[in-house]
């Protein structure tokens, strides 16, 4: 029997963390209230007392806590990131999720006992890249960008001793994570350096005679007719004109959902499934964690042959999906 797949759930707040643990997450991942993580949004994340409480809550129930420090520090703000690493060690965090090699080097030298995971923001899509981080910093797990097909993921797993974690559900980055400066181009704030994509302070909603318009730093991202549900202006998920055709030129507002691929992911040796959504509510975390826990338990009990996706699971997940729809993303070749 191979290792069971770990369920890694998002915790944007202490209530979300407790909810994830209560509903069966094996690990929760979280961040500090600053630019050291890729979900640097107002009202989100943990201050030090909250983090201590969260770690205690998870550890008392035998679950792990992973700290995302997955943005790229610059010269002047470097100490904020190294202090965050020092605090993580002090708080008993089970692993750090890092993207920046310089920070990995710091963590490996200063806290050699700390387990290191390579963040999806590290953009490592091949075993050669992952093995470089392994050799240099001793990473034990890598989170793959959402760009590879199943066969390509299988090839990565087969050629590295590093545990592989993939995204299973949630908001879908259509670009290679860590390689996207679209938000920086439009707003000056990027996932890489500011931990934010299409940040709220640049968003404007305007009710106009032409319909509800959503803008990002003044740039029109989409326009909605009466009766259309106006979504958040994430800039890769707006409607644009290309050669006089108006459509979702990059991606529709949709979520990734790989539930039906679970047996195959288990077969190729995936070690953990990540649920996206630290910016989402505890209710979202409860719903998604519950369904994925049930699915993983069913897989563990009955094996891949007996596994089937219950229609009720998909219905529950679609309720909390962006745009109420889902995709297999790059796992499904025609998506590309």
């Amino acid at each position: 029997m191979p290792n069971p797949i770990e369920l890694v759930c998002p915790a944007g707040s202490l209530p979300a963390l407790k909810t994830a643990v209560d509903h069966g997450a094996d690990c929760v991942y979280l961040g500090f209230k600053d630019a050291t993580n890729a979900r640097n949004f107002t009202g989100l994340n943990f201050d030090p007392p909250q983090m201590r409480e969260g770690v205690a809550y998870a550890h008392a129930r035998g679950r792990k806590v992973l700290l995302a420090l997955n943005t790229y520090p610059q010269t002047g703000n470097w100490p904020s990131w190294t202090q965050a690493i020092d605090r993580a060690a002090e708080f008993g965090i089970d692993a750090l999720i890092l993207a920046d090699p310089g920070l990995m080097d710091y963590a490996a030298r200063t806290h050699p006992q700390l387990r290191l995971h390579l963040s999806v923001q590290g953009s490592a899509t091949s075993y050669e890249a992952i093995n470089w981080y392994r050799e240099r910093f001793g990473i034990q797990r890598a989170v793959l960008p959402r760009v590879l097909s199943m066969a390509q993921v299988g090839s990565v797993v087969a050629n590295t001793p590093v545990e592989i974690e993939v995204f299973g559900f949630g908001g879908l980055c259509v670009m290679v994570e860590g390689r996207c400066a679209l938000s920086a181009y439009a707003t000056g704030e990027s996932p890489n350096c500011n931990g934010a994509c299409s940040p709220g302070k640049h968003v404007r909603w305007e009710d106009t005679p032409r319909g509800m318009e959503t803008r990002l730093n003044g740039i029109l991202i989409d326009r909605f007719a009466d009766g259309e549900r106006a979504g958040y202006p994430t800039l890769c998920k707006g409607r644009f004109e290309v050669n006089d055709e108006t459509y979702y030129a990059l991606e529709e507002p949709t979520s990734l959902n790989t539930l039906e691929l679970l047996p195959e992911l288990a077969r190729i040796g995936i070690r953990a499934i990540k649920i996206e959504g630290r910016q989402r509510s505890p209710a979202y975390v409860a719903q998604v964690t519950k369904v994925w826990r049930a699915a993983l338990d069913k897989l563990a009990r009955g094996g891949a042959e007996a596994f089937s996706v219950l229609p009720a699971w998909m219905a529950e997940l679609n309720k909390v999906s962006e745009g109420q729809s889902h995709t297999l993303g790059a796992y499904y070749r025609p998506w590309k």
Binding site: V147, L148, M175, C180, A181, C236, L250, E251, K336
Partner: peptide, 21 residues
């Protein structure tokens, strides 16, 4: 023109209603 992002998806193929393969 600034190279801003990279994807597994081909947006040119998508524009012409074709799959990347």
């Amino acid at each position: 023109r600034l190279p801003l992002a990279h994807s597994a998806r081909c947006f040119t193929a998508r524009h012409f209603n074709l799959q990347k393969d």
